[in-house]
Computed example of a mutant assay.
Amino acid sequence: MIFLLGLLTGCATHVPMTTTTPPAATISYLALGDSYTIGEGAPEAGRWPVQLAALAQAQGLPLGQPTIIARTGWTTAELQEAIREANLHQPYGLVSLLIGVNNQYRRQSLAQYQQEFRALLATAVAFAGGQPRHVVVLSIPDWGQTPFAAAHDQAQIAQEINQFNQAAHEECQRAGVAFVDITPLTRAAAGDASQVVADGLHYTPAQMRQWAQRALPVVQQQLR
């Protein structure tokens, strides 16, 4: 962040000193993930990374609109491949990562997820200019608490989501990356139709706003 100081003085008469502070430079933001990051079924403005940027700006933190690399159905491996194909180059001031629900849904092993998540985390840190403090990870929502999961074993889903989240948390601790636990928010939304979109699986802007609100103080601390 660069601040310029302007000083104007006169020779024969005194001219009051004036200072001008230009707007702070925009912090570039890269959001990586799957359907939760693109907000499947919700308007673009309702996506949690977009809401995070808006909340940050309202608090005086000039976080830019996110560049989003995400698609419904992606696993960790598919996200990593998409990142390579995107051919991104610039370092970003903030990188967020929310990934893993499709690994669990497709019955991929916990060991595979942890290995691939570790690689993605290293990729995220690299995109953050090698600064782990400029990366934030959100936990996997518990889709077992949505109407879509009514015919599934909800207890098993919750147990596996917990295991995947624990693995991600451990990797974040090793890497020095912030981990924001939003899973309880999605579990608290169980039975509330206003928290899910028409497909009965993905979340409304109101629910995703809670994720952004939970991530905001962590991001503020990281970037200031």
Rank of each mutant, 00 (worst) to 15 (best):
L5A: 07
R118M: 00
Y113S: 00
P141G: 05
T26W: 08
Q207I: 04
V196P: 02
P22S: 12
R187H: 06
Y29W: 05
L201W: 13
N103T: 00
I38C: 02
A149V: 07
V101R: 05
Q173P: 01
D192A: 12
T186Q: 09
A70W: 07
V218Y: 06
A155K: 10
L201R: 11
G33W: 08
L4I: 10
Q112F: 01
C11T: 12
T76Y: 07
T21V: 07
I38T: 10
Q114R: 15
P16E: 04
A215L: 08
Q173L: 11
Q80M: 10
W74L: 11
R174Q: 14
R84A: 13
T183F: 06
A158G: 13
L88F: 04
S109T: 01
G60S: 09
M1N: 10
A206D: 09
A178I: 03
V101S: 13
P91K: 14
I161K: 06
L32K: 11
E170V: 11
Q90A: 15
G60L: 13
Q131C: 06
A149F: 10
A178C: 03
A126R: 15
V50K: 15
M17Y: 08
I157G: 04
G129K: 12
A128D: 02
D153N: 14
P132E: 00
R107D: 01
W211C: 03
R224Q: 14
Q145E: 04
P217F: 02
F148E: 02
S109Q: 00
E116I: 00
Q65V: 11
A193N: 11
P43G: 08
T76E: 04
F117K: 05
H169K: 15
C11F: 12
T67I: 08
A128E: 03
Q59D: 15
P49M: 09
A122M: 05
L138I: 03
Q213W: 08
H202A: 05
W48R: 07
A119T: 14
I2A: 15
H134S: 14
P147K: 08
Y36T: 12
R174G: 00
R187T: 03
F164K: 00
T20F: 15
Y36F: 14
L61K: 13
V180G: 02
L7F: 14
A158Y: 04
I68L: 14
